[in-house]
Design a protein around this nucleic acid. Structure first.
Length: 821
RNA sequence: GGCUGGGUGGCGAAAUUGGUAGACGCGCUGGAUUCAAAAUCCAGUUUACGAAAGUAAGUGCGGGUUCGACUCCCGCCCCAGCUACCA
């Protein structure tokens, strides 16, 4: 065994060993249970930052722990390679996006290898590989034929100077990032995927994911935003057969409606504007107002009355129609019924414009009567109906049903479930993405590219002129013939949203070379992913799209099961000066200098030790040096132990008390680390547990010869338990301590129940709940025996002597509380 | 506004089912070693009083349940993330 510890030499030789043995190259196995461990693949931005280090170290810890536990673990890696930064680099520096991306991938792959991640590199791919996006295009044309894809106009950010569409990230304070021109809203036809067809299933399946954090499930539920309500028609006065349709979740308040309001974009608003210039001015003002959602919420509620009236669907009473800036054209029908007595926003609006406020709900319980004061605020709780004719006295819930029935009976309404979730717009007017495989033919309309013509390859030899996509001016790309009529046609020059690529990569890793559609039978072997690791910033969109895609692929017979991710670990963010590493760091976030200085094991251990995985924390280098020292201490300890000659065979009966204590600690550590690695997923506490074991080992005297066997066992255990976190130093120490081959394949150590047993235990003694002493007693001591032992302690006796003992509580093995007064 | 986390020493944190609050580490202080330094090793490190033994207080604030509360319940304050006029 070499000495002193040299991390770089140690890490090199461990990595060489894994490479030569192809330790992490994995194929399907009948003998061992499969485990698919995946970390969210990175965007190749240039270099790893500490957020990556955290994510991929966690993934590798899980990978190596599961390998030790005997699973056949798939742990692949790839590159989410399409996206805007490559284009920006091309625009700024003139480097083609493809080259920029490939260079970054090579550098970052090298960093990952230096960190010792146990990855099956034979499965690596980048999403910009035509062999990958080929199948994405193929799948899109399948979905088109199934009716799950459609084309619709949608708003984009238009830069009038650069004459191009901008991504949201390219708009800064309402201006184009390069031209500085005020960005306009412009409607353009775009491709959509019908994710709303799966809204119900996406919601329901969340209940079948017990190993997902509740917070993520809640976020997804809120995003899908299911609500149950009633769609109600208010006939427009003076127009036979025409009605204004609104949606409400509170039909119980219908008799309290005193006006209706429509969005500025609603046809009735346009109609009123034709007759009234003030209404027209208001509608124009709304059209120009900001659409930034943050501003919307704080915007002053404003509106304008019109000469249009509608009829109350139950009473026939005429109600005025207003145009209001808080009504969204995109949700429901772009119109609301307003009940100012029982909706705070309607109340504020009605108060401002002098519209009547009518009470129709009162608190169900008399004692809450004070909560309801319509002069001060709307009463929004459920309750009991009043001023509602035949419905008076009903509870809100009963009134919901009764009023819904009445509306259904006179054909003025119907029960309806609504979702907040919108269909997924997948078109991007960008160059560096997967070409959308569609052709626009003047004769035949929109035609999907036939299977035999796929993939539509993105040209990589391009030059940027300004911001706009080179595809739009590249005749060799867009000029094509119609697959149906053979006439001249134009190829779609938009590319896919990059969430398309990241929605199915997990399935592709199972069969990265599959040359039949998308994936082959191996997908059914490996899916679902058993443990998925990634950043909390992807808690909603990426995970939702991937779940949707999995269901689409399932319905195509490509994968089995309803969900792609069984267990989910959502990492907290790594911060630097209070900011997210990936956003702010630059060179400061690059782990390279830490790797050069302290080695991969120190960086990995420090990262795991800093905080529990789901918690955000401020990164500091202080811990890295400390963990480097720990590796050296462990190395030295093993070295000294081996220098003293071979340890005797373990004989539990021959151990001293200290040797027995060390053995107990050893087996407690195995038990605790197993639980922390597996069930709890708290790796910081594993590092602590190993520290404790090593500390005790160092303190254990070698004077009693038989104890050297316990020391040997303790060192070996520390090495195995720490190995998922610090794999290199432990691999070498494992070999030095007599282990054979590759440590990660050696199996998880067994717990010796006998070693955990204790004859005597330390009991904490409390008097009236305060600690007054500690006593050694037999492990199976009864309450009287424990009390006697406790009272023999001087300090305990002191607090009891002039009092009467009222009660005694014994928690076996832990604590005795004497209650006295 | 809504949802979800969180608030424990100088700092990162631990306490898993209600049972010794502060494990483990960083930093700091003192000592050993050294010509000196680095490295290493040993001791100490919540606060107050005390030489020590020990005592009192202490997990954001105010109440409650309990023999016993960082942990459970009620009310509040603050911070972070997500979401946001959703009808």
């Amino acid at each position: 065994m070499s000495w002193p510890y040299d991390p770089h030499q140690v890490e090199k030789s461990a990595q060489d060993l894994w490479n030569d043995a192809e330790t992490f190259k994995i194929t399907e196995s009948e003998d061992r249970e499969k485990f698919y461990c995946l970390s969210m693949f990175p965007y190749p931005s240039g270099q790893l930052h500490m957020g990556h280090v955290r994510c991929y170290t966690l993934g590798d810890v899980i990978n190596r722990y599961r390998r030790l536990k005997g699973y056949n673990v798939l742990h692949p890696m790839g590159w989410d390679a399409f996206g805007l930064p490559a284009e920006n680099a091309a625009i700024k520096n003139g480097i083609p996006p493809a080259k920029w991306t490939r260079d970054n991938i090579d550098y970052m792959r090298g960093q990952m290898q230096a960190l010792g991640f146990g990855i099956d590199w034979s499965r690596e791919f980048a999403t910009c590989d035509p062999s990958y996006y080929h199948w994405e295009q193929w799948f899109f044309t399948r979905l088109f034929r199934k009716g799950l894809v459609y084309r619709k106009s949608s708003v984009v950010n238009w830069d009038p100077v650069d004459q191009t569409v901008l991504a949201n990230e390219q708009v800064e304070d309402g201006r184009g990032w390069r031209s500085g021109a005020l960005v306009e809203r412009r409607e353009m036809p775009q491709w959509f995927l019908k994710i709303t067809d799966y809204a119900e299933e996406l919601l329901d399946c969340l209940d079948d994911l017990p190993d997902w954090p509740d917070s993520v499930k809640t976020m997804q539920r809120n995003w899908i935003g299911r609500s149950e309500g009633v769609e109600i028609d208010f006939p427009v006065v003076g127009k036979d057969g025409e009605a204004l349709t609104v949606y409400t979740t509170r039909p119980d308040t219908l008799l309290g409606a005193t006006y209706v309001a429509v969005a500025a974009g609603h046809p009735l608003a346009a109609e009123a504007a034709e007759r009234d210039s003030k209404v027209a001015d208001f509608v124009d003002a709304c059209a120009q107002a900001t659409t930034a959602e943050a501003d919307m919420a704080t915007m002053e509620k404003a509106g304008i009355g019109t000469d249009i009236q509608v009829e109350h669907p139950l009473t026939g009473e005429p109600l005025p129609l207003w145009v209001a800036n808080f009504v969204l054209m995109e949700y429901g029908s772009g119109a609301v019924m307003a009940v100012p007595g029982h909706d705070q926003r309607d109340w504020e609006f009605a108060s401002k414009y002098g519209i009547p406020i009518k009470q129709v709900i009162e608190p169900a319980d008399e004692k809450d009567a004070d909560d309801c004061d319509l002069a001060q605020a709307a009463y929004v709780s459920y309750g009991r109906l009043v001023n509602s004719g035949e419905y008076d006295g009903l509870s809100s819930a009963d009134a919901f049903d009764a009023i819904a029935k009445a509306l259904e009976a006179n054909e003025r309404g119907r029960r309806q479930t609504n979702y907040r979730l919108r269909d997924w717009g997948v078109s991007r007017q960008r160059y560096w993405g997967c070409p959308i495989p569609m052709i626009h033919c003047p004769e035949c309309g929109v035609v999907p590219v036939p299977d035999e013509d796929l993939p539509v390859v993105l040209p990589t030899e391009v030059e940027f002129e300004g911001v706009r996509s080179p595809l739009t001016t590249m005749e060799s790309f867009y000029k094509c013939t119609c697959p149906i009529c053979g006439g001249e046609a134009r190829r779609e020059t938009d590319t896919f949203d990059t969430f398309m690529e990241s929605s199915w990569y997990q399935a592709r890793f199972t069969s990265p070379d599959a040359n039949r559609p998308m994936v082959d039978e191996r997908a059914k072997h490996w899916m679902p992913v058993d443990h998925y690791v990634g950043g909390i910033e992807h808690a909603i969109l990426h995970l939702l799209y991937a779940r949707f895609y999995h269901k689409l692929m399932r319905d195509e017979g490509l994968v089995e099961g309803d969900e792609p991710w069984r267990r989910l670990l959502m990492l907290g963010m790594v911060l630097k000066d209070g900011k997210k590493m990936s956003k702010s760091a630059g060179d400061a976030g690059n782990p390279q200098h830490l790797l050069d200085k302290y080695g991969a094991d120190a960086v990995r251990t420090a990262m795991m030790f800093a905080a529990p995985p789901d918690q955000s924390f401020e990164w500091s280098e202080a811990g890295v040096e400390g963990q480097g020292k720990f590796c050296r201490r462990l190395w030295t300890q093993v070295h000294d132990h081996l220098e003293a000659g071979p340890a005797p065979a373990l004989d539990a009966d021959a151990l001293s008390d200290a040797g027995r204590d060390l053995r107990r600690k050893t087996h407690e550590t195995i038990q605790r680390a197993d639980d922390d690695f597996g069930r709890r997923g708290t790796f910081n506490t594993v590092v602590s547990a190993v520290h404790e074991l090593v500390n005790l080992t160092a303190k254990t005297s070698v004077d009693h010869a038989a104890d050297r066997a316990a020391i040997h066992e303790a060192l070996r255990t520390a090495v195995v338990v720490l190995s998922p976190i610090a794999p290199h130093v432990t691999q070498q120490l494992w070999a030095s301590l007599g282990g054979e081959g590759v440590l990660v394949e050696s199996g998880w150590p067994a717990v010796d129940e006998g070693a955990l047993k204790q004859d005597t235990v330390e009991l904490v003694v409390q008097v009236n709940g305060k600690v007054r002493g500690k006593v050694q007693v037999a492990a199976d001591v009864d309450q009287d025996g424990a009390q006697a032992a406790a009272l023999a302690e001087e300090n305990v006796a002191r607090f009891v002597e002039d009092k009467t003992v009222r009660k005694v509580i014994l928690v076996p093995g832990k604590l005795l509380n004497i209650v006295a007064s």
